[in-house]
Every structure is written in C-alpha cells, then in structure tokens.
Computed example of a mutant assay.
Amino acid sequence: MFIDYHTHHARCGHAVGSLEEYVKRGIEIGLDQIGLSDHIPLLHVDPATYYPEMAMPMEELPRYVEECFELQGKYKSQIDVRVGLEADYIEGWEEQIERIIKAYPWDYVIGSVHFLGEWDVTDFRQTHGWEGRDKLEVYERYYDAVQKAAASGLYDYIGHIDVIKRFGFKPEEDVTALENAALEAVKRHDLAIELNASGLRMPAKEMFPGRRMLEYARDIGLPLTIGSDAHQPERLGQYLDEARAQLKEIGFGQLATFKQRKRMMVNF
C-alpha cells in the first residue's frame, strides 16, 4: 500500500499546483491513496493584517471541498482520493474549529500545532519569535498544546508532532519527557500520528517525528500514517521511500488510513 496523506495546493497561498495536478501526479507515481489536506482558514488572527499567504480564505473552503469530491469521483478507477483538512489547534478556539469540521463530510482531519498564540512557530518569516525566549518554555507550551489537541476530540491524527524543531531551535535541557507525554496523550485519546517526511528538506534535517519518538510510539502501540507534506506536485511522495524503510526497520508493519472519519490499518 503506497499512500500520501499530507498535501497542500495553491488555495492555501504558500503552495503551488491545483488539486487535480496533485491527483494526476499521484497516479503517475503509483499512489494507491492520496489524501488532500489543505489548511483550515485562519480563525484567530485577521487574515487582512496577518502574514500573507498562510491559509485558504474562508470563502474558498466550500469550493475546496466540492472540488476534492469531484476529483474523488472523476479518478476513482485510477486512484483512491481521500478528502481531508489540516486543522490548526488553537487553544480557546475549539468551538469555531469544530463548526468547520462538522460542516463537511471529511475522510480525516489532521490536528497540527503551528501557532502559539499569534506566533506561527513553523513560518520561516517568524523565526525572530525565538529571540530572547527561553527555548524550554517554548517547547513546554508547544507540547502542552499538542496534548490539548489530542484531548479535544476534533481530530483523527496529530500532524508532524515534533515540528517545533523545524528550524533547529532546541533547548539545552532534555525534552524526552515532554515528547513522551505528548505521544502518550495521543494514545490515551485513541488518535494516530503521522510520520511527516518533509523535515528532511528543512533545517531540522530529520523527519517529524525523529527516530527516538518513533521507537517510543512503537513501544506504546501508537497507530501511524505517513505523508510528504508536499506543497508542490513534484514533491508528492518525496522521501516516503526513506520513511517506509525507517518504519520497517523500527518494527512498524501497518499504516493508518482513513475514510469517513474511521481509521483502518493496512499493511505496507
């Protein structure tokens, strides 16, 4: 089973390519399933005054969903298209997030933490936010948000669970306990995580999560899916061969897939 559940397209503003281009690319590289999973519109900051090109405008969301399902039908004999959403977890905005999630018949919803307040810790334009901060305190806030996302009941799996390391900012202190607590929260609330291969092309030079966290996820029996986090059609499936090889080496034999918000495990 060859799958890629994490993709973005031009509507989000910081990716390129149409949804159909991603589906066609998926067919070309032999994907069995492709997950379309663009970013939820910004809710807690004003899109007009915040950093540009962060997420699709709210008025585009219905058209995004409609187009996803059109492609699902159009290409059903060639590839299995799953319709998803990457929905930022924002503490205090759970009701607004829930309204959007409940408004559409998703196959799956990714819960990702990008924001700590109004600071997007994954945005290359906002790395100055680390200046003068206690890195351990940032990591504590981040992993606390991950635990709250897992407990919220909104999501099917947690995306790039240790993406806080993206730009190489790390505390001198050991953060193993924070990482393990986050993984345990995901397990406790019966969610999965993803192995997001995009970290290999970022300053972190390591997938999200790293090997140690993957080994702990294996030890506690955490389901796991896989994604490239492609923002360009040609990056669909990028590094997923390496990701699958590492998973097999660690001892994973199955991947989580999702349809109509139900998780199904498949061999890979």
Rank of each mutant, 00 (worst) to 15 (best):
P209K: 01
G210W: 00
G210P: 00
R211S: 05
R211W: 06
R211G: 00
R211A: 05
R212C: 00
R212T: 11
R212N: 08
M213I: 02
M213H: 04
L214Q: 03
L214W: 10
E215F: 02
Y216P: 03
R218F: 14
R218Y: 14
R218Q: 13
D219E: 15
D219F: 01
D219M: 08
I220C: 05
L222F: 12
L222M: 07
L222P: 07
P223N: 05
P223M: 02
L224T: 08
L224A: 09
L224H: 08
L224P: 09
L224E: 08
T225I: 03
T225H: 05
T225Q: 01
I226S: 04
I226D: 07
I226N: 05
I226H: 04
I226L: 15
G227R: 05
G227L: 05
G227N: 06
S228Y: 10
S228N: 09
D229Q: 03
D229A: 06
D229S: 03
D229C: 02
H231P: 02
Q232W: 07
Q232P: 00
P233F: 13
E234K: 14
E234R: 14
R235S: 09
L236G: 05
G237H: 06
G237A: 03
G237V: 07
Q238P: 00
Q238M: 13
Q238E: 15
Q238H: 09
Q238T: 11
Q238R: 11
Y239F: 15
Y239P: 02
Y239K: 04
L240H: 10
L240V: 07
L240P: 06
L240C: 08
L240D: 06
D241H: 11
D241A: 13
E242A: 14
E242S: 12
E242N: 11
R244V: 15
R244Y: 15
A245D: 15
A245K: 14
A245T: 15
A245R: 14
Q246M: 15
L247E: 09
L247G: 11
L247T: 13
K248L: 15
K248A: 13
